[in-house]
Amino acid sequence: MLQGKNILITAGPTKEAIDPVRYISNHSSGKMGYAIADVCLQNGANVTLVSGPVCISLLHEHLKLVQVQSANEMYLACCRYFEEADIVVFAAAVADYRPAVIANQKIKKNDEDFFIRMVKNIDIAYEFGQIKQPHQLSVGFALETNNELQHAIGKLEKKNFDMVVLNSMNDAQAGFGFDTNKISIIRNDQTRVEFDLKPKSEVAIDIVNEAASLHQAKENFVKSLI
């Protein structure tokens, strides 16, 4: 069902610079996003992968890899490819905030306390959710530590996702850094499918199958209106 489809995927963390030698980031390895990209490629899709800094490689003739560092760079890269995408998977762990000012020189250790004023980054998934077209399907991720289902449904509605992949930091061997994951998929009608702990390569198949099925249903609905 993905043959010839254009898939845009974000993956990995972002790095928000403090000064020329320091940055703020998170523990995302990018493994989940890259696994999803690999499954899409195996199923005949054309994939644009906008990746933060990771230690993973993926090569394929139908893969366009765009490497970025910051949240703003990731947003600008997605702007170039969003319009042509049939399915968009927001798998990156984008920093919510960045330092308000990036020092030109290395900040020296002087005082006992050091404060950084932070400002909000653009919410990439939210912005594209506002301009998503009827034929496009978007997939979001919710990595939560408490009130997991409530927060996931909140993201589903706020960001105009068609489905959200929920996983909890409370589940053993799931989340950042692991080769396994345990997820639930929540559709925009709030129906939910739960999966057991699996290697991320197999989790990616579950996610792609669900996204492909929902996109096919969306395409059929759009065609029925023509």
Score class of each variant (00 low, 15 high):
residue 98 R to K: 15
residue 104 N to Y: 05
residue 96 D to V: 06
residue 90 F to M: 07
residue 109 K to T: 06
residue 66 V to W: 01
residue 112 E to Q: 12
residue 65 L to W: 08
residue 110 N to T: 12
residue 110 N to L: 09
residue 94 V to T: 01
residue 89 V to P: 13
residue 103 A to N: 13
residue 104 N to Q: 11
residue 82 F to G: 02
residue 119 V to S: 14
residue 71 A to R: 02
residue 120 K to E: 09
residue 76 L to Y: 10
residue 77 A to K: 00
residue 121 N to S: 10
residue 73 E to N: 05
residue 79 C to E: 13
residue 92 A to F: 02
residue 83 E to P: 01
residue 78 C to F: 04
residue 81 Y to F: 15
residue 66 V to Y: 04
residue 70 S to C: 06
residue 115 F to N: 14
residue 75 Y to N: 07
residue 95 A to C: 06
residue 83 E to T: 01
residue 119 V to D: 14
residue 82 F to T: 00
residue 69 Q to P: 13
residue 82 F to L: 04
residue 91 A to T: 11
residue 101 V to K: 12
residue 90 F to L: 00
residue 88 V to R: 05
residue 69 Q to W: 05
residue 104 N to F: 00
residue 77 A to V: 02
residue 107 I to A: 00
residue 99 P to Y: 08
residue 90 F to C: 06
residue 117 R to I: 02
residue 115 F to L: 15
residue 96 D to Y: 03
residue 103 A to D: 14
residue 111 D to Y: 05
residue 118 M to R: 00
residue 102 I to W: 00
residue 76 L to D: 08
residue 67 Q to W: 01
residue 76 L to F: 09
residue 121 N to Q: 10
residue 93 A to Y: 03
residue 72 N to M: 14
residue 72 N to T: 15
residue 116 I to V: 12
residue 75 Y to F: 05
residue 112 E to I: 02
residue 115 F to S: 15
residue 92 A to L: 00
residue 88 V to D: 11
residue 116 I to Q: 06
residue 118 M to A: 08
residue 106 K to P: 10
residue 70 S to G: 04
residue 117 R to G: 04
residue 113 D to L: 14
residue 81 Y to L: 08
residue 79 C to Q: 11
residue 77 A to I: 04
residue 84 E to P: 04
residue 78 C to Q: 09
residue 107 I to E: 09
residue 71 A to P: 02
residue 84 E to C: 09
residue 114 F to I: 09
residue 107 I to C: 01
residue 86 D to N: 12
residue 69 Q to R: 10
residue 65 L to K: 05
residue 79 C to W: 00
residue 84 E to S: 15
residue 72 N to C: 14
residue 118 M to C: 10
residue 104 N to I: 07
residue 69 Q to E: 13
residue 106 K to C: 03
residue 66 V to K: 05
residue 71 A to F: 02
residue 104 N to K: 12
residue 69 Q to V: 02
residue 117 R to Y: 14
residue 103 A to V: 03
residue 95 A to K: 03
residue 110 N to P: 03
residue 98 R to M: 04
residue 93 A to M: 06
residue 117 R to L: 13
residue 100 A to M: 05
residue 97 Y to F: 14
residue 76 L to R: 09
residue 99 P to C: 12
residue 109 K to N: 07
residue 82 F to A: 01
residue 113 D to A: 12
residue 105 Q to E: 12
residue 95 A to Q: 07
residue 119 V to W: 09
residue 120 K to S: 11
residue 86 D to H: 11
residue 103 A to C: 12
residue 109 K to I: 07
residue 105 Q to M: 03
residue 111 D to M: 05
residue 117 R to Q: 15
residue 93 A to R: 02
residue 118 M to E: 00
residue 78 C to R: 09
residue 71 A to Y: 03
residue 74 M to E: 10
residue 84 E to T: 11
residue 76 L to M: 14
residue 94 V to K: 07
residue 95 A to Y: 05
residue 119 V to N: 10
residue 73 E to V: 00
residue 97 Y to G: 03
residue 68 V to G: 11
residue 110 N to D: 13
residue 120 K to M: 08
residue 65 L to H: 07
residue 88 V to F: 04
residue 90 F to W: 03
residue 108 K to G: 01
residue 81 Y to D: 11
residue 114 F to Q: 10
residue 93 A to Q: 08
residue 99 P to M: 08
residue 73 E to W: 02
residue 112 E to H: 08
residue 100 A to R: 14
residue 66 V to A: 06
residue 104 N to H: 09
residue 114 F to T: 08
residue 110 N to K: 13
residue 88 V to W: 06
residue 84 E to I: 11
residue 94 V to S: 01
residue 108 K to F: 08
residue 72 N to V: 14
residue 116 I to P: 05
residue 83 E to R: 07
residue 92 A to Y: 01
residue 103 A to R: 11
